[in-house]
Write a protein that binds this DNA or RNA. Structure first.
Lengths: 215, 215
DNA sequence: GTTTGATTCAAACGATTGTTAGAGCTGGCG
DNA sequence: CGCCAGCTCTAACAATCGTTTGAATCAAAC
């Protein structure tokens, strides 16, 4: 009921447009037009396009990573592998509940976040590199430690790789779930994030439990 | 020893720049400067920036997908799960042998390909959508069939999802392997594609072998 | 009612974008 | 040689980019 806040309106529009087209391909004019605000508002409220991108990412990543750590702390000990994997994956996919509005682009916030996050993290404009590694270093360390506790016998390097694989599977899937619809000729029609996360948890848990690579 | 062909020179420069910065963020002036050719050469030889992007992708994807299908045909029957996974992953990572020059950006062609492919497929400018789904529909169908033969008991939808996860893990890993170096504080320093593929094959094979999701 | 600070607005800035036109160059063939 | 096709070059095109300016508007405080 609060009057639509300009800053949030811009963030919403930026999030959906970055998700659809990426950072570089989205112009401020297109963005402010969709948001229904003046062109100069972005520079006034955020200082520039790059700072806007940082704000878009931070608004979503912060609560998700907080929730991840909260779940990690709440795990039974010794941790079950699937529970650790779930603690990592579910918060990212359930952020849909936070802002329960479904936006103009027809996608749930979770899908939009993962797409924008995947895009910007992959486009990796230089200005975003340090920001991202800083956001994930501590989180990664804690998860790797917990994963090794839940799956004894895998070394640190393997654990890092497998977490990387899991992130990749998650990001790519939510970015391109619609592609799967087309390619599979209708075998996969699920857009429900809850269903996706179950598939993903099963896949990643088994992957983490795989025997160590012998080379 | 052949004189450097302008068309190939452009393709090489475009591949490395698209890999580094993405499609939209790379300008033709930057591209032609690195290639050491005239600005107008891109439009002369390819017709425009979008057609250039298509050519960059096609040059690498075509031989890889051919090799994938060749390996698929050569599999023993009934197929072992790991062999199917390997038939899908290795060709993409071993295309380094094709053009054995290591280019100016210091990355092996395999890494560059995966990065440019991941970028463009994720940026997904509208002009590339149909092109990509067409390239992968037949390949996906054949692999899903073979995977279900090697891992009986998983349904078609699950097989599609897991293949999607595998693609995501592969793409994300090769795009961001350098990030892993930073985040893991040196636990992961491997840049050798051969080592990565072993980790990845182990992870994905286990994921495919996971029990069906019960919901 | 006036003032003050915050926000929005139209308009323009210089820079850069993809693309194109047309002249200039080059090498092989008659 | 003269010619022509293939390619490269300079120069410019219109369009769009992110950003900035300075005036207009608004709401609350005095």
């Amino acid at each position: 009921m609060a009057p639509p806040d300009t800053k949030d309106t811009i963030l919403d529009a930026a999030e959906s447009l970055f998700a659809e087209q990426g950072f570089a391909a989205t112009s401020l004019r297109q963005l402010t037009t969709r948001a229904g605000v003046n062109l100069a508002a972005v520079n006034y409220h955020f200082g520039g396009k790059e700072e806007l991108a940082r704000a878009v990412l931070l608004r979503r990543i912060q609560p998700i990573n907080d929730e991840r750590l909260r779940r990690l702390d709440a795990l039974e000990r010794p941790a079950r592998l699937e529970a650790v994997v779930r603690a990592f994956l579910e918060p990212a996919l359930q952020c849909a509940d936070e802002g329960d509005r479904t936006c103009a682009d027809g996608h749930a916030p979770a899908t939009r976040l993962c797409r924008v996050f995947g895009r910007i993290s992959i486009e990796q404009p230089p200005f975003i590199r340090g920001f991202l590694t800083e956001q994930f270093r501590e989180l990664g360390r804690r998860f790797v430690a917990m994963l090794r506790e839940a799956a004894p016998g895998i070394d640190a390097e393997t654990a890092w790789w497998r977490m990387h694989f899991t992130i990749g599977a998650m990001a790519h899937t939510l970015q391109n779930a619609h592609l799967l619809d087309e390619v599979s000729d209708g075998a996969c029609t699920a857009r429900d994030p809850a269903a996706i996360v179950e598939h993903l948890v099963a896949f990643a848990t088994a992957g983490f439990a795989a025997p160590e690579v012998t080379r």
